[in-house]
């Protein structure tokens, strides 16, 4: 696909896991690229925004996002594992904030180990 490579880099030092705000910034950048393809407004990418209901993403877009997360942060970020076990309704109601929380958690625990 034609989604351009995200260039947003965490502003923290290499050995510190990124903060919630930084992760949100990176994910918002990834989502903006997808939304831009649809010609949708990306101003609503907040922690409370729901992927399907508010951002109108389709499930195949979440596959794209999963690939970008892995490219950005490596195998520690496993989107499929993250939502495995969620019911369809729960996936539909998934918010950006919950994903941000997962990413921050994973990167912090990788830091500790």
């Amino acid at each position: 696909m034609t989604v351009s490579e995200q260039t947003t880099e965490p502003t923290t030092e290499r050995h510190h896991p990124p903060t919630e705000q930084e992760v949100l910034g990176v994910i918002a950048g990834m989502l903006a690229a997808v939304l831009d393809e649809y010609g949708l407004d990306d101003s609503e990418v907040t922690m409370d925004a729901r992927f399907t209901e508010d951002l109108e993403l389709e499930s195949i877009d979440l596959v794209t996002l999963a690939g970008q997360l892995r490219e950005r942060w490596g195998d520690r970020i496993n989107f499929a594992e993250f939502i495995a076990g969620m019911e369809l309704d729960e996936i539909i109601a998934l918010t950006v904030g919950r994903l941000v929380g997962y990413v921050v958690d994973r990167l912090q625990s990788a830091e500790r180990s």
Binding site: S59, I60, A84
Partner: peptide
């Protein structure tokens, strides 16, 4: 349908 029907469910299993 799309591969997303499998990607988050059956494929990782």
């Amino acid at each position: 349908d799309s591969l997303a029907s499998y990607y988050f469910t059956l494929a990782p299993v």
